Computed example of a mutant assay.
Amino acid sequence: MRILMITRPIGEPWNEGGKNLAYNIARNIKNHKINLLVKHNFSNKLSKKFHLERIYSSSKKRRTNFSDKLRLFVRLISKDNLDCYHFIFTPELYSSLFSSVILKLKNKKSIQTIPTPIKDKKFIRPLIFADRTVVLSDYTKNFLINKGFNNIIKINPGIDTNFFKPGKRDLKLINKLNLKDKFVVLIPGELEPKRGSRVILKTLINLHNLEDIIFIFSYRKDNNKKHLKEKKFIKSALSKHKRNNFIFLEDFHNIKELINISDIIVYPTLDMNEKQEIPMILLESLAMEKPIIITDIPPLNEILKSNCGIKIGKGDFYKLSQEILNLKNNKKRRLKIGKNGRKMVVKYFNIIKIAREYEKLYSSI
């Protein structure tokens, strides 16, 4: 079967859950031909089983422009020998209606993978448009089934557990960031209050007289005024309380090495809207035997299938402070939780196993 994966442009920066998931699935499919949508300057060397469709411009902007969308429309209505369209993006009303029209015109078999929680719960019916709909969590699966949909399948996201595994720490990076003999807490994600930035701020203020702990804010660079304002606010507040044990890293290119030099990962988001239901960065961290501390909200909390991390209440900076200290002061427990995390990811989120599930799905429609 020849399948076209319809996503945002595959390629750098590798910091968007939907396209990363599509790329990882495609790389591990054996029995089907995959077409991928990429930018004109895409240069990754891929297997011959891939067909690269260079329809997106080489712009460094993250969002697709009108010309990109027009080229995508022309591509989808053109004649081809494709058997199936596989849509992998967050469903919104207009993009879903557009996809529905394309499917009616082309009369193609279709699969829709929804990587994020459904934001608009008032108008759900138009958002689900494919023959089969894949979700990443039991939370969304049960929600859609309760709304009367019967074509819902849950398939976990997957990562390359042979690539993301424990390894030697990069001493050059440690020295560059001045992290020698420090306990490193990595906070990945957007710099926004709803993503937990104020929770981290309160935690930093609460953890006083602990200069051997360093917090690294690793986030996607964005000229959004809200992000810039939040960064300025956090710096000002920490300066006022005489805190200097934090680092801001924008668009750090090697997330694997950043995880590797960290001791624990903290993800205190207040909601999961517009975020991948099971964030890749957390799976990658667990695969590298790093304990995680997350907010106990669905569907995020489904990631902790065994004793591989810690859950805290929404906004509970006091418990977050205590759990960070507990992990810092108990290396034996920290290492045990880390090993449990890798075992869990290999069992449930190994991309090779996930790709086999998609192959079965492709063959069944």
Rank of each mutant, 00 (worst) to 15 (best):
85 Y>F: 06
350 N>C: 04
236 S>H: 04
9 P>T: 09
271 D>E: 07
354 I>A: 03
63 R>L: 12
281 I>T: 11
363 S>A: 10
51 H>Y: 04
137 S>T: 12
278 I>D: 12
201 L>Q: 11
113 T>S: 11
224 N>M: 02
50 F>N: 13
7 T>I: 10
22 A>K: 03
233 F>D: 14
238 L>G: 11
120 D>G: 02
59 S>G: 06
103 L>I: 09
188 P>Y: 00
64 T>G: 09
193 P>V: 10
149 F>I: 04
257 E>T: 04
299 P>L: 02
348 Y>N: 15
208 H>M: 13
64 T>K: 03
357 E>P: 05
96 S>Q: 02
127 L>E: 00
67 S>T: 13
115 P>D: 13
250 E>P: 05
236 S>Y: 01
147 K>Y: 06
166 P>L: 05
310 I>H: 03
109 K>L: 08
220 R>M: 13
278 I>M: 10
276 Q>N: 07
111 I>A: 04
310 I>P: 08
114 I>L: 01
167 G>S: 15
223 N>Q: 05
2 R>C: 13
97 L>V: 09
2 R>M: 10
76 L>V: 11
9 P>G: 09
299 P>G: 09
8 R>P: 13
59 S>D: 14
361 L>T: 08
350 N>E: 06
313 G>K: 05
143 F>N: 12
38 V>E: 09
64 T>L: 07
218 S>G: 06
130 A>H: 03
360 K>P: 08
365 I>T: 07
12 E>G: 06
90 T>K: 03
23 Y>M: 14
349 F>H: 11
185 V>K: 01
345 V>A: 09
365 I>Q: 03
207 L>T: 10
187 I>F: 10
326 N>S: 10
118 I>P: 04
5 M>E: 14
178 N>T: 14
64 T>Y: 01
5 M>R: 04
299 P>Y: 01
92 E>M: 02
326 N>E: 15
271 D>G: 01
83 D>M: 00
350 N>H: 02
130 A>T: 07
113 T>H: 03
238 L>M: 07
142 N>S: 11
216 I>C: 09
24 N>Y: 04
222 D>E: 10
284 E>W: 00
285 S>K: 03
151 N>H: 07
59 S>F: 01
111 I>E: 04
249 L>W: 03
212 D>M: 05
26 A>C: 07
9 P>Q: 05
212 D>R: 02
90 T>E: 05
267 Y>T: 13
